[in-house]
Simulated scan of single mutants.
Amino acid sequence: MEDLSSFPLELTGPDIPMVRFMNVRKTYGDFVVLDNLNLDVAPSELVTVIGPSGSGKTTVLRMLMTLEKINGGVIYVDGKPLTHMPKNGVLVPADAKYLRKARSSIGMCFQHFNLFPHMTALQNCMEGPVQVLGLSRQDARGRAEELLSLVGMIDKKDQHPARLSGGQQQRVAIARALAMRPKVMLFDEVTSALDPEVIGEVTNVIKDLVPKHKLTMLMVTHQMGFARDISDRICFFYAGKIEEQNSPDELFTNPQSKRTQQFLSAVKAAD
């Protein structure tokens, strides 16, 4: 078992990151997906992860959602351990009860929306707050209507997903995730299933989330234009590590790593 005595029980100090990966390792048998990953995401920062297939991008999100167990290190959210819990003065792997509570501060939007097909847009946004958070239906309805207004979907609140376009479904999915009042939002290829003309509307919705909800966001995408438009910082992953990270302008116009240069050239050629 890994010695966790050197990891803090919680993060303290003036500039605590909203998300911290500390020496995080993920393997499948002998295959190393993430190799001692260290990454901080500041409060209200939007960080986008790019890289070739198999570089560990989506695994980062799945670990934050506790859909994947890590094999080493610790992940912290809002200063407290996510993957582990304090016990007798040391960190131990988190049990199911601790995980349920810890991940309540994290929301996720997937590539394929995953809306409940038998529910209207409004009902989709109400279900979690009622069933999980224990809100009254009246309070949940008020919250859902407020968020559907935020994403420009209040006029479609009584429509079922089958009657909505892809861009409309994605905006409802964002509202549904926000209804749980997360501190951190994860986006996994949220524009890849959308037509090019509606990517802009989803981009604008996501950009509005930081000032209105003070959200910290971590995003995975293979669409470089989207990443450049929306990110505060971009991390290029290669072979389970962060090969290079910088502002969008710097990384796209002046990449320092040869691997980053090769990746961006290949993406540009494919476009």
Rank of each mutant, 00 (worst) to 15 (best):
V90Q: 12
L91Q: 01
P93L: 08
P93R: 00
A94W: 00
A96I: 09
A96R: 15
K97Q: 09
K97C: 06
Y98L: 02
K101D: 07
R103S: 05
R103T: 02
S105N: 08
G107E: 03
G107N: 07
Q111S: 13
F113M: 10
F113A: 08
N114I: 09
N114Y: 11
L115M: 06
T120P: 14
M126Q: 11
V130Q: 11
V132I: 08
G134Q: 06
G134N: 06
G142Q: 12
R143A: 03
A144W: 11
E146W: 01
G152M: 02
M153E: 11
H160L: 05
Q168D: 11
Q168F: 03
V172I: 07
I174V: 15
I174L: 14
I174E: 07
A179D: 02
A179F: 02
V184H: 05
V184E: 07
F187P: 03
F187A: 04
F187S: 05
E189Q: 08
E189K: 01
T191V: 10
T191C: 13
S192C: 04
P196N: 08
E197H: 09
V198M: 13
V202Q: 05
T203A: 11
V205L: 06
V205S: 05
K207D: 12
V210P: 14
H213I: 06
K214M: 12
K214P: 02
